[in-house]
């Protein structure tokens, strides 16, 4: 009997639970020579803003023990060029495209959502709410439940697509934010975005990253991510997509077992461009070894 890897995120179906994480997979085409993009469940594109952005000064990344820090500053082509130059390629793929977007005001999120609403062949939008609100003293919208909710309402108002809301782990209580975005109408939640961090050059006593504050990702963050996802799964009814340090099928299974309906692979794409495909193969082997026909029989089976 064939294995079933299809999973549902509310109203949408993915051919399997393996997605790529925003900012680590470009617009997909960069990987076309390295893996079969049609084998993936979904692709979340580089965080897109209303206008094209050049991003932060250099240096922007540095390796750390078991991970890396980055402060790219959303260098991206902007939504209009995305639609014109990148979307035609992505829409032909079997992997569902999630248009990851970010903005600095609630209104701008709405404008972006409206533009994305016109794309008929995408899986949904992924709303990255961890960014400063320039109209509210620069407070990070992902850390304030009221602001997070208003972003989600604004996006929902402007698109009928599936709205996945990506949460930052840099909060005192993730449950409060998760609940707020669910009540505001989110169709699913993805987490975690990077953990804020810093690295110092002991010779110059300056930051190793020009922006000083940067985001930690990679294997080092995985245990933190698993715990936060478990908390969110136990708080909301909408599906949850697990992200954070996933580089093998074993890693992915931890997330599925605690209740993630799908997973996203980020930093691992850099050091192992075939990570997603290997994870997919590994999930199948695990299912065969354990006589599981349907991946949904794994999801949320954590024994506490």
């Amino acid at each position: 009997m064939g294995l079933n890897l299809k999973v549902n995120l509310g109203n949408i179906e993915l051919q399997n639970p393996v997605m790529t994480a925003s900012g680590t997979f470009g617009y997909g085409d960069e990987f076309e020579k390295l893996i079969d993009l049609n084998a993936l469940g979904g692709i979340s594109i580089k965080g897109t803003t209303l206008e094209e952005r050049q991003g932060n000064p250099m240096p922007r990344i540095i390796e750390t023990s078991g991970g890396m820090l980055n402060a790219i500053g959303f260098q991206n082509v902007g939504i209009d060029r995305f639609i014109k130059e990148k979307y035609p390629y992505l829409k032909k793929l079997k992997a569902k495209t999630f248009v990851n977007m970010t903005a600095n005001t609630v209104e701008e999120f709405g404008v972006l959502a409206k533009k994305i609403d016109e794309l008929d062949q995408i899986g949904g939008v992924e709303v990255n709410i961890s960014c400063p609100n320039i109209k509210a003293g620069g407070i990070n919208m992902g850390t304030d439940s009221k602001m997070a909710a208003s972003v989600v309402r604004e996006v929902k108002k402007n698109t009928s697509h599936h709205v996945m809301v990506k949460l930052t782990p840099n909060v005192t209580d993730i449950k409060v934010i998760a609940k707020a975005v669910e009540e505001a109408g989110a169709d699913s939640i993805s987490l975690i975005n990077t953990l804020v961090g810093m690295a110092v050059d002991i010779k110059t006593r300056k930051s190793k990253i020009a922006n000083v504050i940067s985001g930690l990702s990679g294997p080092a963050v995985k245990p933190v991510a698993v715990k936060l996802i478990w908390e969110v799964v136990n708080t909301v009814k909408i599906p949850v997509v697990g992200i954070g340090g996933i580089s093998t099928a074993e890693d992915a299974l931890e997330f599925l077992i605690v209740g993630a309906s799908a997973i996203q692979v980020g930093t691992a794409n850099f050091y192992n461009p075939r990570a997603t495909i290997e994870i997919l193969e590994g999930l199948k082997s695990y299912m065969k070894e354990n006589k599981i026909n349907d991946i949904n029989e794994v999801i949320g089976t954590f024994e506490s």
Partner: peptide, 9 residues
């Protein structure tokens, strides 16, 4: 970071 133009590092 990646060598293939996806991370913009």
């Amino acid at each position: 970071g990646c060598g293939i133009g996806v991370c913009a590092g």
